[in-house]
Write a protein that binds this DNA or RNA. Structure first.
Lengths: 213, 213
DNA sequence: GCTGGCAGCTTTGTATACATAGACCTTGTG
DNA sequence: CACAAGGTCTATGTATACAAAGCTGCCAGC
């Protein structure tokens, strides 16, 4: 693995997991020494982060970690509803029914994953990630898939703001199952509606449990 | 202006204007000498191009200019319809009516711009660009605006594939005027419908006049 | 004659030294 | 005492030298 990839992954994780707070300045020499690499690969990593919107150049004083405000979350979900609603509809038209039927069955058993005492909910989020991946593949549209991927980076950040308690995750799993079921049934309008419903509930939950930093 | 910005702008224009054909390998030393800069800022420019999808790394053999196939154009317009339809609806809800009323009036007079004998249609495309900018500002959603900006880079490339004759441009101006009118009237559904109509006609025109390279 | 491996060469990846520009502090003047 | 101007210092921006990795083509063995 290249040093620039390593630096990118490390910084991206640090930002997403809120170990690097918004407003933190990422000076080149400081970060390159912390990560044990030279300035050149670090600069490439910072460029990629800035292109993704996780950082921004502060004109002469290095790059700083961007903030996420409540308005940002509204904007983020507005775009997310547009993209994922369309994606769910396309997946229902073009996807493989058996794949999503399997995912629906797994999602119906998600409560056992949630109560299994994994504090990071690794298995659960892995399952949801597989649903995202399946939709990405089913839509057969690389530009839309790319747009959703770049959006998910910010959404993971938002997720950390909310208290993802077992109750909400159980409800979310049922909503995801409904989306998978609609896609498996080949019903685009239903798939889009199920996605809209899920996202509205997610947004409500985030805003209700949001703990101001 | 920084050397990396200069290199980025130059390469981006070369690709968009089809002076650099798809499949062209952009070797670092070759391009850095051509542009009169060092390899370091050139690498940053290539990184940005790759992040945008205009180039792709060909594993060990440098970066190559990406191709745009007919399927890509379909995918591109599928995403475009989703994003711009939503944007038009939001602009109708949140935009300033007077601004779009002015743009509508200008667009109604666009035929005179088109027939004014400017081969590059500079004035016409400038006016359309101002409509895009006005919509970007009106939606009050930086994430959606960013997604549309990254999409437009590819669309300019596609535009060069089609024969943008005066007849089509005149019709397109009328369609743009209809979008502006719907936004000025504060009618989201009408604005979205006008956008859908315009994009479908644009896509049909591109596919009809597309000249295989 | 074909295939597999090795050597050389070209290419990218990294490190470091240097240039440059902006910000902050100091100092002088009004 | 406040404001402005200049200098210095620290940061990023650039260039170049070096390292490593991948492709290519040749040669030998089967």
């Amino acid at each position: 693995m290249r040093a620039s990839d390593k630096a990118y992954a490390a910084l991206r994780d640090d930002i997403i997991e809120w170990r690097l707070a918004p407003g933190t300045v990422l000076a080149e020499v400081e970060q390159s020494e912390r990560l044990g690499i030279s300035r050149t690969p670090l600069r490439e990593a910072l460029s990629r982060l800035t292109a993704e919107g996780l950082t921004t150049t502060a004109g002469g004083r290095g790059v700083v970690v961007t903030d996420i405000s409540l308005e940002d979350i509204d904007e983020l979900f507005e775009l997310r509803e547009t993209l994922e609603g369309k994606a769910a509809a396309l997946a229902a038209e073009r996807g493989d029914a058996a794949t999503f039927e399997r995912l629906r069955n797994e999602l119906c058993q998600a409560p056992s994953l949630i109560s299994a005492g994994d504090p990071a909910r690794h298995d659960y989020y892995g399952l949801v990630g597989r649903l995202d991946t399946a939709i990405d593949a089913a839509i057969h549209n690389s530009y839309l898939a790319q747009a959703m991927r770049s959006l998910r980076v910010h959404l993971v950040r938002v997720r950390r703001l909310a208290a993802d308690d077992a109750e909400r995750l159980t409800a979310a799993a049922a909503e995801h199952a409904a989306i998978a079921e609609a896609i498996a049934a080949g019903n685009p309008r239903l798939a889009e509606a199920a996605t809209t419903l899920h996202l509205h509930r997610s947004l409500s939950h985030v805003k209700a449990t949001h703990t101001p930093q």
